[in-house]
Design a protein around this nucleic acid. Structure first.
Length: 520
RNA sequence: GGUUUCGUGGCCGAGUGGCUAGGCAGCGGUCUGCAAAACCGUCCACAGCGGUUCGACUCCGCUCGAAACCUCCA
């Protein structure tokens, strides 16, 4: 593949060249969480997957508008007799306002996403704040003749839609099967066909969350909010729509139908779907009750967890699998991720020391991670990775090239990581004096790590930067004192200091160029 | 039952028609006051059976097994 970005489009089931509709702008909509429960590992996967996409598009110079919704209304509870709103049910139980629940869990979601170093999208619209847009969309679909009203509820007419269009093209469903194979639900008798889905539902008397509409006091159907909000913020035709594979049918399938019916054409160019996180081979999800919340991961308070796992360990764990593969949770895999991440970060620190040694005058240690360099605004009409360095390709330039090639091949983050590990091997060899790196090679290596490890993969050293400078000064002092005792072969004192530091979870390692320290 | 997808070494996970993925764990060395780290080497694969091919883990078919979706779910 050439130097261009290819992404897997679920619609064609092929990797396609990414050509934005209106470069250098790129629009992306991703289905966000329903905020009636604590965020769990399953929520982390799409958030991190599309964060990776967001970050890479930004890196390439695109001006990205990334919209991720908050669903705070509208999903029915399937296991109850009445079609009650999930959020309303929970509110009844806890004696709280529905919006209070939604607010609480939305805040929790944001907090944990931030911990995972997931960038905030450009816009995070809420379904409850877009009733007018949703009602207007129902109106348009009715006007187009692809919906009908019954007793204050409005349903999408799948069979009629399927005459000129193809309902099922995204998920590979066949209309015949849909018409015969759909389970019967409450309100089914109102529908002309079992496969029809609700655009607007009339609220039962006990239903708390309700809004006025031309048809009834009620609430919007399951799939409407995403169509209404993506159209509002990204236009009638935009580049990328993402979400979990479990949303393929019926959610995204119905979105396609709604937009086609309301607008007259499809609205999405590339459909991207991340695969599931599994636990014991099964999907981790709310319905199975086998989910582990992010809080439980970070604190280690869950029966299945042998220890706590840091947010960056979780992020590394997710990125070390390709986003379209299932990813199986296990303590062993997470512990491997923890060690692997540590190795990468240690390699970066070693690189910083090599660069400092290479300078005529000592330089302060480089800041960890650092902010992504902002793309040059608006100048890049045809964004693409930087051209390779002139003058023959060295090993390190090859790593850079491979990292770009991996990202360009449908965001292959595991491949990027493998190349970064190769970089670490070279860095460590250089630190061991087994080979030498020129100043420009060191700079290129640093650039690769800053770009790929920190900016694009979005990993970071979890040590606090503010305190680190003070602490580092302090530690240099302690290590200098210890070094004196080592020089006089006073191993008792030397080991005493090291043991005492270890009790504070500070590990000291003695190398050829002196001692280095690290907080566990 | 239908749709979609997958089965890679002790564990997790990339990838390709012929050339080492990578991480973690194991084993043997080097280095080291000790420890740790690091470096070098090394063991363990491509579910099974056929077919296409000069050659398949990679393509095709079948068998077995697994998952997601078909109902809210990331």
């Amino acid at each position: 593949m050439d130097n261009q970005l290819y992404i897997h489009n679920t619609l064609s089931r092929k990797k396609e060249l990414f050509e934005p509709i209106n470069p250098p702008f790129a629009g992306m909509y991703v289905c966000g969480p329903t905020v009636y429960g604590d965020p769990h590992l399953g929520h982390a996967r799409p958030a991190i997957t599309f964060d990776l996409v967001f970050r890479y598009l930004l890196h390439l110079g695109y001006r990205v508008r990334y919209v991720r919704n908050i669903t705070d209304v509208g999903h029915l509870v399937a296991d109850l007799d009445e079609g009650e709103d999930k959020i309303a049910v929970k509110a009844r139980v806890e004696q709280l306002e529905p919006m209070e629940i939604a607010q609480y869990y939305a805040d929790r979601y944001f907090t944990y996403m931030e911990a995972l170093n997931v960038k905030r999208p450009s816009i995070e619209p809420r379904a409850s704040g877009h009733m007018i847009e949703q009602i207007l969309m129902v109106r348009k679909i009715l006007d187009a003749g692809y919906a009908y009203e019954v007793n204050g509820s409005v349903y999408f007419d799948v069979e009629k839609y399927s005459k000129p269009y193809e309902y099922g093209k995204l998920s590979g469903r066949i209309l015949e099967d849909l018409l015969t194979n759909t389970r019967s639900l409450e309100g089914q008798d109102e529908k002309r066909n079992a496969a029809d889905f609700a655009l607007w539902k009339k609220a039962q008397p006990e239903h708390i969350m309700r809004w006025p509409s031309p048809w009834s006091d009620g609430f919007p159907g399951w799939h409407l909010e995403c169509s209404a909000m993506s159209t509002k913020y990204l236009g009638e035709y935009f580049d990328i729509h993402g979400g979990g594979m479990d949303l393929l049918f019926p959610h995204h399938e119905s979105e396609i139908a709604q937009c086609q019916a309301a607008i007259g054409h499809e609205s999405v160019k590339y459909w991207l779907h991340n695969n599931m996180v599994t636990i014991n081979g099964q999907k981790m999800g709310k319905s199975l009750g086998n989910f582990i919340t992010l809080e439980e991961f970070f604190t280690g308070t869950h029966a299945s967890l042998q220890q706590a796992y840091s947010p960056m360990t979780i992020r590394f764990f997710i990125l070390q699998a390709h986003y379209r593969s299932t990813l199986d949770f296990s303590n062993e895999a997470l512990q491997a991720a923890e060690k692997g991440l540590k190795k990468l970060l240690a390699g970066y620190e070693t690189l910083g020391r090599l660069i400092a040694l290479n300078q005529p005058h000592p330089q302060p240690l480089p800041k960890r991670g650092g902010e992504p360099s902002p793309p040059a605004p608006g100048v890049n009409q045809n964004p693409s990775p930087p051209a390779p360095l002139p003058g023959g390709e060295g090993r390190i330039a090859a790593i850079q090239r491979e990292c770009y090639a991996a990202m360009n091949d449908d965001f292959n983050s595991p491949m990027v990581m493998a190349n970064l590990f190769e970089g670490v091997r070279i860095i460590n060899s250089a630190a061991d004096k087994k080979e030498s790196l020129s100043a420009s090679e060191l700079e290129l290596m640093k650039n690769i790590f800053d770009t790929f490890l920190f900016d694009i993969l979005g990993l970071k050293d979890e040590k606090s930067d503010d305190q680190h400078e003070v602490l580092d000064g302090l530690m240099q002092l302690v290590l200098a004192v210890r070094q004196k005792s080592r020089e006089t072969k006073d191993w008792g004192t030397s080991d005493q200091i090291r043991d005492a530091l270890q009790n504070l979870h500070i590990t000291v390692k003695d190398g050829k160029e002196g001692s280095v320290w690290n907080i566990e």
